[in-house]
Write a protein that binds this DNA or RNA. Structure first.
Lengths: 208, 208
DNA sequence: TTTATTTTGTGATTTTATTCACGAAAAAAC
DNA sequence: GTTTTTTCGTGAATAAAATCACAAAATAAA
C-alpha cells in the first residue's frame, strides 16, 4: 500500500507545495503538483487518497493544510535527530548540509575512529565511535547514517543496533545483514552515477 | 524493458561481484548475487537474460567475465567524465569522493560563482561558471552534476544544455524543464531522509 | 556409460503499480 | 435557481514488474 516510491512522491509533492506557497499560491490542483513533480494528476490524487489527504472538488487543495497533512505523514511534524558515522568527505558534507536547515532533520553528532577529527565543541560534535551507544541513548537518537567505507559498514551497523538505532541510511555499497527491528535504506552514489551513464549512453548510441 | 530500477540492480550485482571476486570467488550463482543484493535468484537471472548476459547451467557465472559484461552494459568499460556545478558542501564532497577512485567515474572540474572558491591548480580545478561551456566542449564532457540551491538550478541547467551536456544528475529539489536530448536524474537527500523517517515511524507506531 | 544432481534461461502466472474514466461535489455563470 | 464548468475521489481496466516453475544443459557420481 504505502511503498517506498509512493513515499518518495509524497516528499516531492511536499517540496513542490512549499515552492508554490512561496509563489503565493493559496490553493493547488493535482494537476499543478503533477506538473511540478513529473507525474500524472491522477497519480497525485491516488497517492493522496491512500493517506486520507483530501481536497475540495473544484477547489483543489489548500496549500497550508496540504503541507500540514504531508508533513504529518512524513513525520516532519516533529524534529528527527540523526547521527552520522564516518566523518569523511560525505559524512562531513551531510553534517554541514544547509538544505536541512529549514526542515525538521537535525544532525546532532558525528562519530569516527580518527582522533584528528574529534571536536567536542562543535554544534554537532565529532566524537569517538566508542561513545556512540552512550550518546544515542542519552539523546534519544533513533536514526543514523552510515558513511564509512564498505569494509567497515557491517561492523558499524552492529554497533548501531546495539545502541538502539531504529533506522539507518546506508551510503556504503553493501547490503547490511539486519534483524527486523531496524529499517535500512541504501543509497549508493556510484550506483546513481552509473544509472545516469547507462541512460545517456543508450540514448546517444543508435545501435540500441 | 530496461528500466531505471533494473539498471540500479545491475550496478548492485556488479558491486557484489567485485566483492566476491576479492574473496577469491571464481564463479558465482544467481543465488549468491541475490543474497548479496537482497533480491531473488530468479530476478537476477531475468535481469541478466534481458541484457544477454549468460552463464553456464550448473556452473553459474564466471566472475571475471560477468564483470566485463556488466561493465559494458553500464558504460564502465571506458572513463566517464563529469563536471560539478556548485562547489558547496555537497559539490565539494563529490569532487573529492574517494569511492570513485577505482571506478571509471572521473570528476574533472567544478564550477561556482563565488571567486573565493576558484582554484585553477587543483587536480579537478574549480572555475567560474562562465567558463563552463568552453571547458565542457574542449574536454568533451557530456555529464554534469547540479549541486546548487533550488532557485539556481534551472538557470544552471540551461547553461549545461547550451554547453552540450547530455546527462545531468540533479541534487536540487526541483524538476528541471528539459528538452528531450538531455537525460535528467534527480536525487534529493532530504527526500531520502524523509523516506527513512516514514518507514521507521510507521513500523514503531502500532496504530498503522 | 548411465543416472543423479545442480543451476541456468525463460514462458506462464501472479502481484503490484499506474492510468483511465466517470460520478459527485462545489463553485461560477447565466 | 438552474445550468455549466471544473476538479476531486475512486473503482475498474491496463500496464509493468516480479515470481514461479520447469525443461534443458552441464557436471558429478555411480
Amino acid at each position: 500500500m504505502s511503498t517506498r516510491s509512493r513515499i518518495l512522491r509524497l516528499s516531492r509533492y511536499k517540496n513542490a507545495a512549499i515552492r508554490l506557497k512561496s509563489l503565493n499560491f493559496v490553493k493547488v490542483f493535482s494537476d499543478n503538483l503533477g506538473d511540478a513533480t513529473g507525474v500524472t494528476a491522477s497519480q497525485v490524487r491516488k497517492d493522496f487518497s491512500i493517506f486520507g489527504i483530501s481536497g475540495n472538488r473544484r477547489g483543489g487543495y489548500q496549500v497550508d493544510e496540504l503541507l500540514v497533512q504531508l508533513n504529518k505523514v512524513l513525520g516532519k511534524d516533529k524534529p528527527q535527530k540523526f547521527i552520522v558515522v564516518g566523518v569523511g568527505n560525505l559524512g562531513r558534507a551531510l553534517i554541514n548540509y544547509p538544505g536541512f536547515g529549514k526542515s525538521e532533520i537535525r544532525i546532532v553528532a558525528g562519530f569516527d575512529i580518527d582522533p584528528a577529527k574529534y571536536n567536542r565543541k562543535a554544534d554537532a560534535p565529532i566524537l569517538p565511535i566508542d561513545e556512540l551507544a552512550g550518546f544515542a541513548k542519552a539523546n534519544e537518537v533513533e536514526l543514523a547514517i552510515i558513511a564509512v567505507p564498505d569494509f567497515a559498514a557491517q561492523g558499524v551497523f552492529e554497533k548501531l543496533i546495539k545502541a538502539g538505532i531504529k533506522g539507518v541510511l546506508n551510503f556504503a555499497p553493501i547490503r547490511l545483514k539486519s534483524d527486523d527491528n531496524v529499517t535500512v535504506h541504501n543509497l549508493n552514489l556510484e550506483t546513481e552515477f552509473e544509472n545516469l551513464i547507462y541512460f545517456v549512453n543508450t540514448k546517444t548510441s543508435p545501435t540500441e
